[in-house]
Amino acid sequence: MKFAAFLIVSLCGGLLLYATADLPAWGDPNSPAGTHLSPHYIEKALEETDVPNLVTAVLADYRGYDTMFETAVVFCAGLACLLLLRDYTRKKGSFYRHIPTGVVIHFKENRKNPPKSREFEHMDKEWVPYDLIMKTVCRILIPFIQLYALYVVAHGDFSPGGGFQGGVIFGSSLILLAISYNLRTVMDRIKERVLGFLCVLGVLVYTGIGVLCMIPGGNFLDYSKLAVFLPVDPGHVRALGMLGVEIGVGIAVMAVMVVIYVNIASEGRHDEGL
């Protein structure tokens, strides 16, 4: 099995390396990209797409097909992390702390569901007391970080930003929650199932917009055909298509970040870690 995987990987790598021989030289001013493509993007991007940010226009519109598979690669990374690391065997024994007295109880077997009440607190094996300063500051900061993430996603077509960056910021806010409180707090707020669903949803939004463009008879990811569905100025439709795509990318990246963090930090058990 390992040998087969090695064979496939080296074949693909060899094929890619072989194909690079046909590429134009590095920085060649006479290559097609230098003579036709870049001047077209620089001169026409604003009037064609109505997006002031040229980088976003190239990334999400002209090269939208490429970006779709980048999102799929991110999704695959999350999926691989889940498949390799997820451990469904429940660990034996758990620690509980009686909050008023500070006595720690060790349940050796998990026969029943442990008592869930205000007096008892499920605690990690390597438990450290909550730091009040850390907790409070993180509680104040996390909403702002998330708001900023949404701002970055929504402003992708006006200023530096976009789906990847915004998704990473949003995911890191959830990771900050996991670090400052504990992993169970995050997993109680976002169930594992929801995370997996969001991973898929992000990629589906992207491809769904692509397919939606095909319904009125356009090409895959040809946003200008979305004018049928959107009652706005036809010149602005491509910008809106890009925004939708960016939102899909943001959702996928956010969920994948959290999935990777949670699986690595807790060795796949989703109960405790870091």
């Binding site: 730091d131 300063i133 850390m134 900061l141 702002f144």
Partner: peptide, 12 residues
């Protein structure tokens, strides 16, 4: 935000 987060990071 820097005023809020930098001392907290140092503290932790």
């Amino acid at each position: 935000f820097v005023f809020l987060s930098s001392p907290t990071a140092t503290h932790s």
